[in-house]
């Protein structure tokens, strides 16, 4: 299983990014072998509109099964749902802490967009 987490950093010890669509990038962790890759999201940091839609497509392109983030806007939610990516609310902490909490079943899955666009 692949788990995507938005982060401004490049390691599992990096903090989670407070934003989804405009995160600097995503860390995509593979639970099979504990490896991870970085997916750039830089083109969306300054996008006028549609950052959430593009970021959600970027996530889908990584083959992630799950994305852990603090919030999901309405458009990103629709795209991730259409792509079959499970959305889970993060906790404050590092990428690693979020992945461990998810695997331990401590994080809550969402079936609703929880913030308005342009949040």
């Amino acid at each position: 299983m692949k788990i995507a987490v938005p982060s401004p950093g490049r390691t599992l010890e990096s903090s989670i990014d407070g934003r989804f669509g405009r995160a600097a990038g995503f860390i995509v962790y593979n639970t099979e072998d504990g490896s991870f890759t970085l997916a750039d999201n830089g083109q969306n940091m300054n996008a006028g509109q549609g950052a959430g839609v593009q970021a959600a497509q970027n996530i889908a392109a990584t083959g992630a099964d799950v994305v852990i983030a603090p919030s999901f806007g309405p458009k990103a939610f629709q795209v991730l749902k259409a792509a079959g990516v499970k959305m889970v609310f993060s906790i404050v902490g590092t990428v690693k802490e979020n992945i461990e909490s998810f695997i331990a079943g401590k994080l809550k899955e969402t079936d609703n967009a929880n913030v308005e666009g342009h949040w």
């Binding site: 549609g50 839609v53 593009q54 259409a82």
Partner: peptide, 18 residues
């Protein structure tokens, strides 16, 4: 170019405000 249409080899989602 405006992410108004999104498709995962499915009929596209339309975000008309984009």
């Amino acid at each position: 170019q405006f992410n108004a249409l999104v498709s995962f080899n499915t009929p596209p989602l339309v975000f008309s405000d984009l």
